[in-house]
Write a protein that binds this DNA or RNA. Structure first.
Lengths: 148, 148
DNA sequence: CTAATTTAGTAGTCGTAACTACTAAATTTA
DNA sequence: TAAATTTAGTAGTTACGACTACTAAATTAG
């Protein structure tokens, strides 16, 4: 049988990448289930949070700027932002200085939803990371070293 | 402006969950780009690798068993397995003992592809985790504690 | 042994995520 | 300043990933 040929092969659980993947999928699932109760996905929340942050740093925020900040591609970002506009969580206004660009403005409803969603996210994170809490700095350092 | 209302809010980069998400997305992207050169996605590779492993532990493997092993849902697994069968990497044979079930058999072509893909995966992993190599045990331990 | 329940798999939906390809506007440079 | 290049955003494709809903077969229970 083909499968009896032996070639060096780690069991999935022995592989850092696979572990990372599994853990993140679980975290994401928890987040999406919790956020789903208020009609948000994790990606939607994350873009709204990013917009909130960027809005505090600069007067105007374009879709491209938000995409850069959130490390999402502009095509996907565009679609999610259209969805968020339909839900009236933000507005996409034509930029007067650059007629290609859209300025993003979070609405009152959006801010309120974000505020509530953030409580949920914080709660889910606390539960999820409680097993690692003492080593949180170590954990975050290791992750940070893996970025880029 | 709405966004000037202050409410406690961590910057994304200060958040373990967000870091985890970003790192995993980057790892996944690297993997998918590398595996893409040989016509595989990470998920396809992962299911083939899981099938390979399970095949060594038991005589027969059903879709459900593979899904359980890989922590994927059976609906998604079914679709990916149909794709893999079309690519002739495996066969889905009717189980003689349980006519609801499909027995999965990796083909010669599948084994060969898996072998080559594994070299790629190993390579990408080595590069990706090189910054953490000395702390690999610590890293894997922390991740393992987060599972389930 | 029949009815109720569980199990294995498929079909189809929604929302990313990574693409290619495109339009139109802004910027650079020759 | 006209031409070449870059930039901001949209449209559409493929492939998960998490669902609901369904069929049919196997198992359990009364």
């Amino acid at each position: 049988m083909d499968t009896e040929k032996v070639f060096s092969y780690k069991e999935p659980e022995e592989n850092s990448g696979y572990l990372l993947w599994q853990v993140t999928m679980q975290w994401q699932l928890n987040m999406n289930r919790a956020l789903g109760k208020m009609g948000l996905t994790l990606t939607q929340f994350s873009l709204m949070a990013g917009l909130y942050w960027l809005s505090q740093k600069q007067q105007t925020v374009t879709q491209q700027q938000l995409a850069d900040y959130a490390n999402t591609d502009k095509m996907m970002t565009s679609k999610v932002l259209i969805t968020l506009e339909k839900k009236q969580f933000l507005e996409r206004v034509k930029d007067p200085d650059d007629s290609r660009a859209k300025q993003l403005k979070i609405t009152k409803k959006g801010t309120q939803t974000l505020k509530e969603a953030y409580q949920i996210v914080k709660q889910v994170d606390d539960v999820f990371f409680k097993n690692v809490f003492k080593d949180k700095t170590v954990f975050d350092d290791l992750l940070t070293r893996l970025i880029k």
